[in-house]
Structure formats: C-alpha cells, structure tokens
Measured scan of single mutants.
Amino acid sequence: LAALHAEGPLAGLPVTRSDARVLIFNEWEERKKSEPWLRLDMSDKAIFRRYPHLR
C-alpha cells in the first residue's frame, strides 16, 4: 500500500519516495501484461521525473 496526500494541491500523489516506488511498481506490473518489453525503473531520477514534488 502507498500513502497518498489526502487533500490540497498534492491530493492523490505519493507522500514519500517509497510510496512512489509502490505506485510505479503496481503500474508496471499491470502494463507488462500488454507491453512485456517494458523495463521497471524505480530510480530516484525516474521518481523525480514523475513526481517532482518529492525532490
């Protein structure tokens, strides 16, 4: 499970980098069924690119 911001401008976004990794992994797991070539990237760089508020 990932903790998400409940309200405000960040509502629905992950609270920590660990939470972001959970979301990225879950999405990758779903997408790899139809796109088996996808690589999993959970590096800090990938997290910041996707969720800049975690910098």
Rank of each mutant, 00 (worst) to 15 (best):
L1Y: 14
L1W: 13
L1C: 12
A2M: 07
A2W: 05
A2P: 12
A3N: 13
A3D: 11
A3S: 12
A3C: 13
A3K: 12
A3P: 03
A3I: 12
A3V: 15
L4I: 09
L4W: 03
L4D: 06
L4A: 06
L4R: 02
L4P: 03
H5Y: 14
H5P: 03
H5C: 08
H5V: 06
H5N: 05
H5K: 11
A6I: 11
A6H: 09
A6P: 13
A6T: 13
A6M: 14
E7Q: 15
E7I: 09
E7P: 06
E7C: 11
E7H: 13
E7Y: 11
G8D: 05
G8I: 05
G8S: 06
G8H: 05
G8T: 07
G8Q: 04
G8C: 07
P9N: 10
P9M: 09
P9R: 06
P9L: 12
P9F: 10
P9V: 10
P9A: 12
P9Q: 08
L10M: 11
L10D: 04
L10S: 07
L10P: 04
L10K: 06
A11I: 10
A11T: 12
A11V: 09
A11M: 12
G12A: 04
G12M: 06
G12F: 06
G12Y: 06
L13T: 03
L13N: 03
L13Y: 07
L13M: 11
P14D: 01
P14N: 00
P14W: 01
P14Q: 00
P14T: 00
P14K: 01
V15D: 03
V15H: 03
V15R: 15
V15K: 11
V15F: 06
V15N: 05
T16I: 01
T16Q: 07
T16C: 09
T16A: 05
T16E: 04
T16R: 08
T16D: 10
T16K: 08
R17P: 13
R17W: 12
R17I: 13
R17N: 10
R17M: 15
S18T: 09
S18H: 13
S18C: 15
S18Y: 13
S18P: 06
S18Q: 11
S18D: 12
D19L: 03
D19T: 02
D19E: 08
D19V: 04
D19A: 07
A20N: 00
A20F: 07
A20Q: 00
A20E: 02
R21S: 09
R21F: 06
R21G: 07
R21T: 04
R21C: 10
R21E: 13
R21K: 14
R21I: 07
V22L: 14
V22E: 08
V22S: 10
V22C: 09
V22P: 01
V22G: 04
L23D: 02
L23I: 11
L23H: 05
L23S: 03
L23E: 02
L23W: 03
L23A: 06
L23M: 10
L23T: 07
L23Q: 05
L23N: 02
I24N: 00
I24A: 03
I24D: 01
I24L: 11
F25M: 10
F25P: 00
F25Q: 06
F25H: 06
F25V: 06
F25Y: 15
N26W: 10
N26F: 14
E27A: 05
E27R: 04
E27L: 03
E27S: 06
E27C: 08
E27W: 11
W28Q: 02
E29R: 15
E29M: 15
E29T: 12
E29C: 11
E30K: 13
E30A: 13
E30F: 14
E30D: 11
E30N: 15
R31D: 04
R31K: 13
R31E: 04
R31I: 04
R31N: 10
K32P: 02
K32V: 15
K32M: 07
K32N: 07
K32C: 10
K32Q: 11
K33F: 07
K33W: 11
K33R: 10
K33Y: 10
K33A: 09
K33E: 09
K33Q: 15
S34A: 11
S34C: 11
S34P: 02
S34F: 15
S34D: 15
S34M: 15
S34T: 15
E35K: 10
E35I: 09
E35Q: 10
E35Y: 15
E35P: 04
E35C: 10
P36F: 06
P36Y: 06
P36Q: 08
P36H: 08
P36L: 06
W37V: 07
W37I: 06
W37C: 12
L38S: 11
L38A: 14
L38F: 14
L38W: 08
L38I: 10
L38D: 04
R39P: 14
R39I: 15
R39L: 11
R39E: 15
R39G: 05
R39H: 14
L40Q: 01
L40V: 06
L40P: 08
L40R: 01
D41N: 09
D41R: 04
D41C: 07
D41W: 06
D41E: 04
D41P: 01
M42A: 07
M42P: 02
M42Q: 07
M42V: 14
M42I: 11
S43D: 05
S43Q: 02
S43E: 03
S43G: 08
S43W: 01
S43C: 05
S43F: 02
S43T: 12
D44M: 15
D44R: 08
D44E: 11
D44N: 14
D44P: 14
D44K: 08
K45R: 15
K45S: 13
K45F: 15
K45E: 14
K45P: 09
A46K: 06
A46I: 05
A46Q: 06
A46M: 08
A46E: 13
A46L: 09
I47R: 00
I47G: 00
I47H: 00
I47K: 00
F48V: 12
F48I: 10
F48G: 10
F48Y: 15
F48Q: 06
R49G: 13
R49F: 09
R49N: 13
R49K: 14
R49D: 14
R49V: 09
R50H: 05
R50F: 11
R50E: 06
R50I: 08
R50G: 02
Y51R: 00
Y51H: 04
Y51N: 01
Y51F: 15
Y51S: 00
Y51E: 00
P52L: 02
P52I: 02
P52Y: 02
P52E: 02
P52S: 02
H53V: 01
H53Q: 01
H53W: 04
H53L: 01
H53K: 00
H53I: 01
H53A: 01
L54C: 00
L54D: 00
L54V: 01
L54K: 00
L54G: 00
L54E: 00
R55T: 11
R55A: 13
R55M: 12
R55D: 10
R55L: 14
R55Y: 10
R55H: 08
